[in-house]
Design a protein around this nucleic acid. Structure first.
Lengths: 170, 170
DNA sequence: CCAAAATCTGGACAGTGCCCACATTGGGTC
DNA sequence: GACCCAATGTGGGCACTGTCCAGATTTTGG
């Protein structure tokens, strides 16, 4: 009941690639959605690693803004260079945030943790009430930039200027 | 070579709904992608109207920030209440921004125009260099909020606080 | 009125997810 | 070693899809 045009994988195609019968994969992953779930977990981990590495890229003292920009650029860069893997992370029929996979839940929490810490480093320390909404705003901005780049509406070169315009200087 | 699970329409299904043979639609829209293109144009117009109405909702004097928040909430609201129609707008195999449909191009320009005007009203008038990156940033933030709401990662109630946290007061 | 264009129809083909019954294999346990 | 069972594989089949085709039907314009 489901297939794809070109950019998406089919169970039968992975079977062909693996040189096995058309439903050997069907015994490993009970479902096509289950396969995509696994793929989405792998991809989410890759995205997390990219963000973590970006945050820890430099030991020299630098402004929180510079770190935040680097994390955002890393997020968008992963999406731009692995669009299929990025897309499967947020695929609505794979990633139901209400009931995440046991593997996905901690990864999602880790990504949100990086975003929250990065956001917190940008906020005045006496306004903890802003952390929640600001984290969501930063997440949305970075995610929106990624989506717009993947969709081709903006170029990857537009990302850093946009982030700099968004983040308050200092 | 293409089908969908549940939320998506098939040519044969619309034929059944219309009570005609399985490829009468195929003679009207030469392609399934062409059908989706048309749908995406309609949806883009609906989105544009929602944003335009939101901007013009009040005649009383109010801050540019309040207007911007209302426009953003309208964008996200359209996405939240018509997720399929919103999704088709940015579907990568439908909306290739490099070569937009003759109907889509002005709609896209109009939406970007509203975003640019709204952004300009928030910027100091002596910094026209910020308009481009800031417009992209606002677009990305609003679009990202919409995607996160549609995907279920945040609730619609989180949108307005996030926008308020993002937009500089004043 | 009649030809041409638009529109509709059923049939076919390749591809897909999924389910089924059945073979093969590999490890544990008596 | 013999035996059983679970994992893993195989082919066949079903319903569904997009797409192409040849031909029928309807509408329209000169």
């Amino acid at each position: 009941m489901r297939a794809q045009g070109h950019a998406t994988l089919s169970l039968r195609e992975v079977a062909r690639m693996a040189g096995v019968s058309h439903n050997a994969p069907y015994h490993h992953f009970g479902d096509r959605t289950a396969l995509l779930k696994r793929l989405s977990e792998r991809s989410m981990e890759e995205l997390f690693v990219a963000m973590r590495d970006a945050r820890a890229a430099t030991a020299q003292p630098e402004t929180p803004r510079a770190v935040a920009v680097r994390v955002g650029v890393a997020y968008v860069g992963y999406a731009a260079h692995h669009p299929e893997r990025f897309r499967v992370i947020y695929d609505p029929e794979v990633c139901i945030p209400g009931s995440p996979t046991p593997t996905m839940a901690p990864l999602l929490a880790a990504v949100e943790g990086i975003l929250a810490q990065t956001t917190a480093s940008l906020l005045p320390p006496d306004r903890p009430d802003l952390l929640g909404p600001s984290t969501i705003a930063i997440w949305a901005a970075v995610h929106g930039l990624a989506e717009l780049v993947v969709a081709g509406h903006i170029g990857e070169a537009d990302v850093e200027p946009a982030l700099l315009a968004l983040l308050p200087p200092g």
